[in-house]
Amino acid sequence: MSDDHSPEYYKKKFIPLIYLVGGILIAGTIITFAADKMGIAERWGFVNATIFAMSVAVVKASAVIYIFMHLKWDIKLKTISITLGSTVIFFIGMMCLTVGSEIDSNKPGHEDNTWNHVEQSDPKTVPDDK
């Protein structure tokens, strides 16, 4: 944080902000934990539960980055948002590619249809090479 803030600013504004963010973090933890104990995975389905838990975690993480790591005062909000957003998008893209290449690949027990672009002709009608 740049030094142009007065001591008054820290006492009046910043310290309450710390308590607020601390509260958000604790509340987020309790919400996630309680939701899990109430069994949201069964009720909402696993994917929705994951989205919920990850959203809470992202909110908590943003609060930490924004206030505790005081990026709010260090660089512009727009820059942070774009950086964080593009990081998330990049990460998701990478995961789609890696996991995608894993899922699509030929696994035992799964039929590999990678090369089946053309309809296969009936093997009986194919003339024997020899």
């Binding site: 803030h5 001591p7 710390i18 601390g22 933890t29 934990f33 505790f68």
Partner: peptide, 28 residues
């Protein structure tokens, strides 16, 4: 053991808040 995990989460969060307080105290 989810309770232990939650407990550890809470104290780590608390430590994160206290270290900002330490820095603000130095600023003051």
């Amino acid at each position: 053991n989810q309770w232990v995990g939650a407990f550890n989460t809470l104290i780590l969060i608390a430590s994160s808040a206290t270290i900002v307080m330490a820095w603000v105290c130095l600023k003051l």
